[in-house]
Nucleic acid binder design. Structure first.
Lengths: 346, 346
DNA sequence: AGCATCTCCCAAACCGGTTTAGCGACCGGT
DNA sequence: ACCGGTCGCTAAACCGGTTTGGGAGATGCT
């Protein structure tokens, strides 16, 4: 019938011991007899006592939470398949450790840094995830200055004191290029993500290198922004060229789908006259027409590993970088042999 | 050069006042001379002092955070345009109040209730958002029992002590039906969301009522699950009927896009032989071919209003329900007049 | 001058845990 | 019988704020 929730003092009194004993018993620390420990825990359960997270946070100077600051332009937020899946993976491991996830969504980079500052200043979190690594990412130094432990998704291009979860997009892109080359394509373009993202650059490099490895010169590359509108724009640009590509590798599925639509509106058959590949392998990719050849990634798996790595780091067990399995190509109906062209038919 | 961050005691000492005075000054409470207040604040700024969120949380028994528990099957997480946008809207108002958002993503309903229990038991949050209302939603009673303030998105079908942010999907669906009827459709089917969601049921009712209002009998309705796979399945089902519909209203864009693909694979022209409408108006909707007629919603706007409502509630200013503007139909290329059929041509 | 009132501030208690210092009981060894 | 060491526990300090009770000094009123 008690209105207010029981405190450690209530448990101590009921068990006939001191607060300290209850604390020791709860945390499984030595120095309390097994018999006593059991009794204390029994009383605690009977009273329905749960240690106050707030009090514990104050006295241990820990937040028991990790943070994620996400900078996304509003129009991309809804379309991004990565971030919700990543979070789900994170949650899976946080939940079993009674840790919480504090999320901040911001729309500009300036706000993003403020977000980290606030998380740090408030002591809301014990560590953070660093996503969407950028070229010469200033956030690394910021987090160092804030003394905020972090785990990066991908390997930064600047010196970083933080463990990284290494995800390699390149094999997937390379596989896509090889797949297209094997089909006979000689003119493979790329619609990339923004230049300043490391993963955008990595996918672009992979595309370029794979083509060179095949003895071909890379087709045109158009940097874009991961949005459907951007993908459509880039596609128009490529198809307007004097010598348009016979295949386009897009840096994500959304741009690829928009690109397919553009091709179609221009009267081009996909894959008959233009092959298209995406990246992410979203659920929709398999259910559009033609079904989209894409590169499957595992954001949820990355989230889980990143969370575990971060919790270890926060506990003082800074581990080494973790390598994740490479992305895999999933071949569907949006890729096929190119049409015969003046270049190829004598 | 101090390693550890300054505390209120440091500020008090430096300003030559007591801790209490600093606290009063900071919180703008009466009882401290204007001159003194300015001096204290100056010293605080000079020392770079920020009140410890943890200490404040303990002494005021407030978390200065709100929570969101999201139950989604993994395969839907990436495709759902609603939740990231909603969160972005929430953040916009939380940020300006120095509140944080604690997120929990779970995959089963059982886990969802545990999620709320944990948030409450840990005192991690002062209130929560209740999304995806279900028929006879048990979470209402749970939150009441947990004494956790909440704001619901939509009006529950059970007695609820919580303020609601009222979003009405029905006008959008009704507009879609009217649009199709005006085009000449007489046989309009619906691919719905899961039956147990209130908004799924609402969209279904709206579809049904709008058809009746037009003097037509509702075509078949297939409940589905908001996934691309589900949308494809439902579409096959509808097109396999002896008397297939000439138009299908889908409960979200993803199912509509998958449905369009199915129609196409079966050799049906959209919109020539089958008209299709979606719901959500995702960014991609405008960039597929044919561009998808859809119903535009404003999840980010809802998030902002829901956050403000929740913060007010937590502060003891439980307000009335808030009505949001209705969803609007956006007509694009996926809808057109139906082909002449035996029914219609004498 | 005397007294009530008001303003401004301080000291101390409090929130609910964790952690340290230390004390008595018990143990084995000599 | 005495001594050093371990075990099991308690009391109290501590984390860093907020809040309450009350005291000193200035002011107003008669």
């Amino acid at each position: 019938m008690s209105q207010r929730r029981p405190t450690i003092t209530d448990v101590a009194r009921a068990a006939g011991v001191s607060k300290g004993a209850v604390s020791f018993a709860l945390n499984g620390r030595p120095g309390v007899a097994e018999e006593t420990r059991r009794r204390i825990l029994a009383v605690a359960k009977e009273l329905g006592w749960t240690p106050s997270h707030r009090a514990r946070a104050l006295s241990t100077s820990r937040a028991f939470a990790v943070g994620l600051v996400l900078a996304r332009p509003p129009e991309l937020l809804g379309a991004d398949p990565f971030f919700p899946a990543f979070i789900a993976g994170v949650e899976r491991v946080l939940a079993e450790q009674s840790q919480a996830l504090v999320l901040q969504v911001v729309t500009s980079q300036r706000a993003e840094e403020d977000g980290y500052r606030r998380l740090a200043a408030d002591g809301r979190v014990d560590g953070v995830f660093l996503l969407d690594l950028r070229v010469a990412d200033p956030r690394i130094a910021l987090l160092e200055e804030l003394r905020l432990p972090a785990v990066t998704l991908g390997r930064p291009d600047v010196a970083s004191p933080f463990p990284a979860v290494l995800v390699d997009d390149r094999p997937g892109i390379a596989a896509a290029v090889r797949h297209l080359v094997e089909l006979g394509h000689r003119h493979v373009a790329h619609v990339a993500g923004p230049d300043h993202f490391l993963h955008g650059a990595a996918r672009r490099d992979a595309w370029e290198n794979a083509l060179r490895d095949a003895g071909l010169s890379p087709g045109p590359c158009v940097p874009s922004d991961f949005s459907a509108a951007g993908g459509a724009r880039a596609t128009h640009h490529l198809l307007d060229l004097a010598d348009p590509p016979s295949a386009i590798i897009y840096a994500n599925d959304v741009m690829a789908m928009a690109g397919m639509a553009v091709a179609r509106e221009r009267g081009l058959d996909v894959p008959g006259q233009l092959s298209v590949t995406g990246f992410d392998d979203t659920e929709l990719a398999a259910h559009i027409s033609p079904a989209l050849t894409s590169v499957r990634t595992d954001p949820s798996g990355w989230g889980g590993v990143a969370a575990r790595t971060l919790l270890d780091l926060v506990d003082g067990n800074g581990g080494p970088d973790v390598e994740m399995p490479p992305a895999q190509l999933v071949v569907r109906a949006s890729t096929a042999a190119p049409p015969p062209t003046p270049h190829q038919s004598p």
